[in-house]
Amino acid sequence: MSKYVIETKNLTKQYGTQKSVADLNIHVQQGRIYGLLGRNGAGKTTTMKMLLGLTQPTSGEVAIWGKPLRTNEKKLLPRIGSLIESPGFYPNLTATENLRIFATLREVPNRNAIKNALDLVGLPYKDKKLFSQYSLGMKQRLAIALAIMHDPELLILDEPINGLDPIGIAEVRSFIRDLCTERGKTILISSHILSEIALLADDIGIIDHGALLEEESLAELEAKSSRHIRFTVSSTTQAARILERNFHETQFTIQDDYKMRLHNLDISVGEIVTAFVENGLTVSEAYICEESLEDYFRRVTGGEGIA
């Protein structure tokens, strides 16, 4: 059995000669929030539609809970809740009335499902306020209530904070986090807002022009973009031994045979360079790097950055 709730293999969607998604390999782990991060038009929505069977891939595979989606839609899709673009709610009905229609269509068995879903997103049950009178934040919360009404194990949410004001963003962020930590849901969420994904996600995939550029835990990405001393030397293996022997230092990352990063900035760069040279190493670069997370994303996406 696969350890991933969602796993794709070379997932590709092509329109004519244009690849909207190209050879995508993502891995979403049980009980975690995975943030799919990219600019508008990067391929996030197309990816999510393929994960839900709404769009057929040109090539590649989608596995949910270790089973291929293509031959198991009837078993797998009822266990998933989704928010892709805006649901078609009736403007002249209340939230409860709207959800009651969807519950009937989907044959949701739980009589308290509507009330539970509305309670969870902070909307009143059997309120007289019509959907047309809702603020954008309330509409978005109702859309998420629809996605969770049947108590799914997996949630796929496309830009759920898009267009919300700061208070609405904070509210939506809070109960998405609670759905994961308190109720054990696995959540795949897409966004073009770097700061929000950084506050919410456990793992992050960076997608740009349909291709996955990075896939790591948030902690690993933050370590990459945090303050560090960058060295280019003639042998990182030898440099590592010198750091351990002379400075009792283990907080470093070896990138390849020549490049490494030291994450402890309390040691003098000059002392380290001196030790390297005295032990026969050639040091061609040694400098303190203060790259922000935004700087890092700008670099990996080719300079344009993410909002």
Score class of each variant (00 low, 15 high):
280 G>L: 13
60 G>F: 10
213 L>I: 08
148 I>Y: 06
213 L>M: 12
63 A>K: 10
218 L>C: 04
106 R>Q: 15
93 L>G: 05
197 I>M: 02
267 I>R: 09
186 T>H: 04
284 S>G: 09
209 H>P: 00
224 K>N: 14
229 I>C: 05
95 A>F: 06
145 A>K: 05
158 D>L: 02
86 S>V: 06
74 K>V: 07
116 N>K: 15
35 G>K: 00
17 T>G: 14
186 T>S: 08
102 F>C: 02
291 E>S: 12
133 Q>A: 15
188 L>H: 06
142 L>N: 00
217 S>Q: 10
86 S>R: 09
303 G>Q: 12
307 A>S: 14
150 H>K: 12
284 S>W: 14
70 R>W: 14
69 L>C: 02
219 A>I: 11
268 S>P: 13
40 N>M: 10
170 A>D: 15
172 V>P: 01
181 T>K: 10
211 A>Q: 10
58 T>V: 12
234 S>H: 00
265 L>Q: 05
111 R>K: 14
37 L>P: 02
191 S>F: 07
62 V>G: 02
239 A>I: 01
1 M>V: 05
64 I>R: 00
109 P>L: 09
269 V>G: 05
242 I>P: 00
112 N>E: 14
19 K>F: 09
192 H>I: 05
190 S>C: 07
29 Q>R: 07
252 F>L: 02
305 G>W: 02
140 Q>F: 07
146 L>Y: 07
14 Q>V: 14
184 G>L: 06
15 Y>I: 13
87 P>Q: 06
1 M>N: 10
184 G>A: 04
234 S>G: 03
207 I>H: 06
137 G>A: 03
124 P>A: 11
201 A>N: 03
222 E>R: 13
196 E>F: 02
299 R>I: 10
273 V>Y: 10
222 E>S: 11
215 E>C: 04
145 A>E: 03
303 G>Y: 09
160 P>F: 05
289 C>D: 15
196 E>S: 01
141 R>S: 05
81 G>K: 00
282 T>K: 04
20 S>Q: 11
233 V>N: 04
238 Q>H: 11
143 A>G: 14
14 Q>T: 14
231 F>V: 00
68 P>Y: 09
291 E>G: 06
39 R>N: 11
39 R>V: 05
133 Q>D: 15
86 S>G: 04
7 E>T: 09
55 T>C: 13
177 R>N: 07
168 G>Y: 07
291 E>Q: 15
49 K>E: 13
282 T>F: 08
53 G>C: 03
45 T>E: 09
271 E>T: 07
37 L>C: 05
196 E>R: 01
95 A>N: 01
201 A>G: 07
204 I>S: 00
196 E>Q: 08
143 A>R: 08
66 G>S: 11
295 D>Y: 10
117 A>E: 06
142 L>C: 01
298 R>G: 15
34 Y>F: 15
39 R>K: 13
273 V>H: 06
153 E>Q: 03
195 S>D: 15
277 V>N: 06
304 E>D: 15
215 E>D: 12
69 L>T: 09
188 L>E: 08
153 E>G: 06
279 N>K: 01
178 D>A: 11
152 P>D: 04
258 Y>M: 04
166 P>I: 03
116 N>R: 14
215 E>S: 09
262 L>R: 01
119 D>F: 00
36 L>F: 15
245 R>M: 08
64 I>S: 04
148 I>Q: 02
271 E>C: 01
121 V>Y: 04
62 V>K: 01
